[in-house]
Design a binder for these strands. Structure first.
Lengths: 225, 225
DNA sequence: ACATGCGGTTAACAGCGCATTAACAGCATT
DNA sequence: AATGCTGTTAATGCGCTGTTAACCGCATGT
């Protein structure tokens, strides 16, 4: 799911360019020409980050930020200031902006700033680590494998290996790839070690006969559900 | 308790001025002339934030940041770059810097950036001072743990550790994360120290058998209720 | 200056978990 | 049939964990 960005800018040419670049970066950008429209949108949808120009018709950027903060005290806000004016910066940051960028700015710099906040948030929020595999529910973060109200605990290695197999569910994963991703390197003994773990995983997965780990001779394994 | 800032800068005049301003702001600034000295200090003491010049003798700012990240993946790092060099910025931010500032910078701007991070951290830890955990009621601010009209007093460290476990109730928290959040950094002895505290917490929590701190071998702990 | 108490750290040891290794049986491919 | 690959179980041993107790620094009180 792409991160949704609220972008408020009245200069149409700049907005078009920025919107384009951010979209190419993989963000879902919603652009508004004035603060009132932006605020209305913010109240209806959820945004992961806001980029707001300070100089705006109808409602200026600071007022908009204040209104946004009333609804949401967490969402990161980045201000775009027309000139380098120290007082404005301070005012904006006190309102609860998290950063600002001065026109003219390079699009790379803006992307960097956006990434900083979205990366940080990603660390804080609980990543979706639960995958469904047949009748099982596997929680990678908590290393649990559940089926029919029964919950098993896996070890770290078991979990990592299962995770790798699930990522390529119904596809073959080569021994080499598994070894590198789970153990970091490959040699003969680690290979045998992995076989032991495959064996244990199979035992863990017996409760749903539709879920199987099959061996592809000389190549690797395939988890199918 | 004043926030402690690690400041690495080889230009003595600039360092003196900055140090002075930050001290007046109420920060406890420790200044080092080179990366090696700074790293040594970082490993010995706890810092709430780092301000690092990129151009340094002996060990450059990026290398220093990398080393710091090995010990502590959480502490905010602000880079000071001599020129506006895009590649360097990107490199620095990928290493795990949280922001950067370009020379020459106004001291107000630096203070603003510092405040953003320290304020943010503050916001995260102060909300929700009373939490319910099983039959217990834990008041983080007052460091009290109550059950059935019986009230126990916890120590500061016990409280912080319990708080971190409660925040991720029913989820695994890694040893690394606990160490960084409660002790500010990680090493072998602090790890053992933490085990002692886990042991003490378990003793405090015996009155409700449904509340347990379980160990996830080689990973961390999980408080379940 | 000397006790006292408190809280956090370090030391020491017991115990256990789990990845690895070994060993052997069975299977696939040639 | 021969060879290499895989499945499984069991043994081994390292490293992680639980716990008690001693220790140390610091603040407070006498």
């Amino acid at each position: 799911m792409a991160d949704q960005i609220l972008y408020v800018e009245d200069d149409e040419t700049l907005a078009f360019l920025t919107n384009d670049s951010l979209s190419q970066e993989g963000y879902n950008v919603k652009h508004y020409m004035d603060g009132a429209a932006a605020l209305k949108a913010f109240k209806k949808e959820t945004f992961d980050l806001c980029v707001i120009d300070v100089m705006l018709p109808i409602m200026d950027g600071f007022s908009l930020a204040t209104k946004i903060r009333e609804v949401n005290s967490q969402v990161p806000i980045i201000f775009v200031t027309a000139k380098s004016m120290k007082e404005d910066k301070i005012l904006g940051l006190q309102i609860g902006a998290d950063d600002y960028i001065t026109k003219p700015f390079s699009i790379e710099e803006l992307i960097l700033k956006i990434n900083i906040f979205l990366k940080r948030r990603f660390v804080n929020t609980t990543e979706n680590t639960v995958s469904q595999i047949g009748k099982f529910e596997f929680d990678f973060k908590n290393l649990t494998l559940s089926i029919d109200e029964e919950k098993k605990r896996l070890t770290q290695r078991e979990g990592e290996l299962l995770q790798q197999l699930i990522i390529k569910k119904n596809d073959i994963v080569s021994r080499k790839e598994l070894l590198e991703r789970v153990w970091g390197k490959e040699d003969y003994f680690l290979g045998r070690s992995m076989d032991v773990f495959i064996s244990r995983l199979r035992k863990h997965l017996t409760n749903d006969p539709n879920v199987t780990i099959e061996n592809i001779h000389g190549v690797g394994f395939r988890l199918s559900a």
